[in-house]
Nucleic acid binder design. Structure first.
Lengths: 218, 218
DNA sequence: GGTCCGATCCCTCTGCCGGGGGAGGCCCGG
DNA sequence: CCGGGCCTCCCCCGGCAGAGGGATCGGACC
């Protein structure tokens, strides 16, 4: 099956280069191109790409915003591969946090680029699976049973996620920059809503209901 | 040309393991070892390694600070490969932002580790997806790694499994028909072997390493 | 304007959890 | 035979967790 690729970059030269590289592969196909992040929802809806190559830095709607919006609204979003010039671009990390599946350096060799696209399209492997899933899960809506049924508030969900990283109450407090007492209140509410006796049971519920996931897989 | 590798980790066991793995490769050579991030500038200046393996989490100067300092002061710094236990460790993001070239999971297989070192040493191919893919590599399906590496006894494994069902120590004791003190001893041993602070972290490790799984699947 | 809810913080108090010891019985293997 | 794992149980103790109260503030909603 050919992998459907969409390219979004404000620099036409980059688009031409990427199109040439991607188009030369028998198993890859460029199904859409755009020069503005604002077009992303439209082209995704129309062409249903498997992989979306998008520049983090663009005038108007940048890759970060586009990614976030996409994962928040699309029922079956493409895998997002962020394009960047500098490997230490701070936006990249924000993009990854927003749910991007990986990133690609503009100066990477063509063979590396297409390999990255294939890897990303395969979906189940790659970069920071757990972290990405967690973040994507926070924005997008993939299924929890018990946790979703608990109707946690944003803050409570955040606290549960931190509990599921093994943090103690003081550590969560530090991370959220609030008092320990506040965290304890949230924890108490989470436990009550989930019907759990202690934080360990809550973390188990989080795993079992897919609120958090081990090493990958939706 | 042999790739010169320096290893910095506060855990001597990890250092021994890495040294054994790296040293066994004909094209890799361990030129320095340290247990404290404070030693990094010194060993880098003295031994001029190509690749620096460093643990993100260490008492005193951690990998993050060491990396930052190194890249800020060294004229020709080594490529930094960060060592971490959890792939979603928040420090990892910070380390990458600080200039690390990639990260290595402690539970990765030796072949994946040396491959990662070679990729990093090659320098220009800093493509994360490709590198990470080799690291995360064959992860899926059956991978106890962390838990298996802990070499738990039968009883300890049984206790961990019960911990992962959300049982308290008294409940585990009742289930196993032994005293609570016995259970506490097993729990203590499990925590020590897994390097966890509390039972919640142990349960997370059990899920993340596939020792137990949500809802099904091998 | 009043009500409800979410987020924040504070207090007390019970108790299990987890660390650090030690100690006896068992079976296996050198 | 005797050492070493493993399982079992015991004591002491500091500390955080979790229950149960109550309080303030802001925004959303009516």
């Amino acid at each position: 099956m050919t992998i459907r690729v969409a390219i979004v970059d404000d620099d036409e030269l980059i688009r031409i280069g990427l199109r040439a590289i991607v188009g030369a592969q028998p198993d890859l196909e460029v199904v859409a191109e755009a020069g503005d992040g604002a077009d992303v929802p439209d082209i995704v809806a129309r062409t249903r790409p498997h992989v979306l190559l998008i520049d983090v830095r663009m005038p108007g709607i940048d890759g970060l915003q586009a990614t976030r919006h996409l994962l928040a609204t699309s029922a079956d979003p493409p895998r997002v591969l962020v394009i960047t010039t500098f490997e230490n671009d701070e936006y990249v990390y924000d993009a990854l946090r927003a749910g991007a599946a990986g990133f690609l350096l503009k100066r990477a060799r063509p063979a590396e680029m297409v390999e990255a696209i294939r890897v990303i399209a395969a979906g189940d492997s790659v970069l920071f699976p757990a972290a990405i899933r967690r973040l994507a899960g926070a924005y997008g809506g993939s299924g929890d049973d018990r946790v979703r049924a608990a109707r946690l508030t944003d803050r409570e969900a955040e606290v549960l996620r931190l509990m599921a990283t093994g943090r103690s109450n003081p550590e969560i407090a530090e991370h959220l920059v609030v008092g320990v007492e506040t965290v304890k209140t949230h924890v108490r509410n989470v436990l009550a809503k989930l019907g759990c006796r202690d934080r360990t049971q809550a973390v188990i519920a989080a795993y079992e209901s897919g609120f958090v996931n081990p090493n990958g897989l939706p």
